[in-house]
Every structure is written in structure tokens, then in C-alpha cells.
Amino acid sequence: MSNPGAGVLAVMPLHTISDVYGGPGLRDRLMLEIADLPGADRLEEALELAADLHRDDRYGREPYLNHLLRVAIRIVSHYEVREPDLVIAGLLHDSVEDHPRELAGTRPGEPADAALSELAERFGTRVADIIAAVTNPPPDPTQDRHVQYREHVAANLERSPWARIVKLSDFTDNGVGILYATGPVMQRLAAKYRPLTDVYRDLVTRPDTPLADHVKQHILGQLDNADRRFDAILARD
């Protein structure tokens, strides 16, 4: 199906674009959102790198790149953060966690560290630092994985206000979009994410979180929506 006009695409909900127009529609929406941002070459390089790294990855019923596109679009459009570094971090926020060796190439050292060095060289230390803050550590077999995840999120985002923006967009896509998950994955994700909404409520309302007040209120509403969906899913267990 061909994409609608730019005016329609610009106001269409992101998951609707995904359902109706797929990845090409999301790419077109991102291009609309970043058309007046500086550093077009860096943004396009980040998009192509994300597409290459995640080329074989799936996000439920769709290509994983769709999730990354929505995270980046939401940062610019819904959160009104018009900074290229944040868009790039949104597109590449899972790159170190999911594809460290491929990203690192021939760089020496631990794959995750080498991958972050590669990102710093290509996109700057700010981008690499934000991605480092939202990258989950390897599982600790001595600790419950959900507890480890919550503690990691709270600790890393405590000291990285800009990374909160990327993680909030990521969580919104995962949480509010949980109804797009398939089969038992939906139940597993609801159990993982439900205890986190209060952590995000605290982080989003902090004075040093660099978002406008009306954007913070919008995100709080999205967290409420996510809670209702988590609770409905978990009540079926």
C-alpha cells in the first residue's frame, strides 16, 4: 500500500503506521520529523547502521527496525527533543546489547566496550554514553533477572538524565505497544515491565529530566495506559 500524504502521516499514531504502511511508512515519518535537524549525514548513517545490525531481528510480528524507528520518532515528535544525538541514540539504543561483536568489528577488547568505542568514534562520545546507560548488563545467575533489570534501570538512569529520554521512549513502545506482542511473550513482558512503571514515574518527574512539563504529563498518561494493559494481561494468568 502506498503511503498517504505527508500531512496525514505526520499525525498518524506510530503503531498504526507500522500496521498499515510498515517500515517504509515509519522511515518516511522519521524523515519528516528530522528534515530540519542539522547533521543529516550522521542521522542517515545511524539509520543505515541500525538497519544493517538488526537486519535479521524480529520484534514480535514485525522487523526489529520498526521498533527502533518508533523510539526515534517518539523522541522528536512526542517528546519534542529535536537533538540529532538523541535521535541517533534512539536508533542505536539496542546495538551494543544485541550486536556488540558485529558493531565492534576488529577493535580489540571486550565486545561491548569495543562496540561503544566504535559508536563514540562514529557518532561522538555523547551518543555512546547515552547508549551505554541504556544497555543492559549480562545476566547475573545469582540474581533474579527482573530484579537485576529494575536495579540496573534505576541506577543508570539516576545519573544520566538524557538517557532517560531514550529509555522512556523505548519503554513506552514496549509497554503501551505490548498488545502487539505475540502469544506467551505478552505475559512474560507484562511481568517484566509492570514493576518498572513507578521507577519511570519517579524519573520522568524529576527536575533534571530535560523534558517540558506538558511532555512529562503526556508520558505519565502513557505509563498509566501501560499499567492498565499490564494488569489486564497478568489477570489472565
Rank of each mutant, 00 (worst) to 15 (best):
A115H: 03
V166N: 04
E45A: 15
K192A: 08
V127N: 03
G25Y: 12
A128E: 03
R61D: 13
F230I: 09
F230R: 06
H146C: 00
V71H: 06
P207C: 00
M12S: 03
I75M: 14
D41M: 05
R70V: 08
E118K: 02
T209S: 10
V87K: 04
L203G: 06
R188E: 05
D113V: 02
T135I: 01
P100S: 09
E151M: 12
G221M: 10
Y64M: 05
A181C: 02
D85P: 05
A235D: 14
L211E: 10
P139R: 09
E110W: 00
D98N: 11
E121Y: 04
P13Q: 04
A51S: 15
T205E: 12
D113A: 10
N66S: 06
G109D: 05
L203H: 13
L196I: 02
R101D: 13
V147L: 08
P13S: 08
V127H: 02
L32F: 01
V215I: 15
I233K: 01
R42L: 10
H15F: 13
E62Q: 14
G109F: 02
R194F: 05
I73G: 03
A6V: 11
I165W: 09
L119H: 09
I88V: 15
F123Q: 08
L49A: 04
E102N: 02
L223S: 09
V76T: 14
A133L: 09
T125H: 07
H67D: 06
V8A: 14
D140C: 01
E80N: 11
Q148F: 06
H214M: 03
T125Q: 13
Y79W: 08
E33I: 02
D237C: 01
A190Q: 11
V8G: 00
R150Y: 07
V76Y: 07
K216H: 04
F171V: 11
S160M: 14
L37R: 07
R107L: 14
L168P: 08
L103Q: 11
H54W: 05
L26R: 09
L223E: 08
G5N: 13
I130L: 15
Y200P: 03
A112C: 11
P137S: 12
Y79K: 03
I178G: 13
V81W: 05
A212W: 11
Y200D: 02
R201D: 13
R236P: 00
I131W: 06
P84N: 07
I130C: 07
D224G: 13
P195E: 03
I165G: 09
G177I: 05
A163K: 10
Y21M: 05
V185E: 04
K167H: 15
M186F: 00
T172L: 04
R145A: 12
P207M: 01
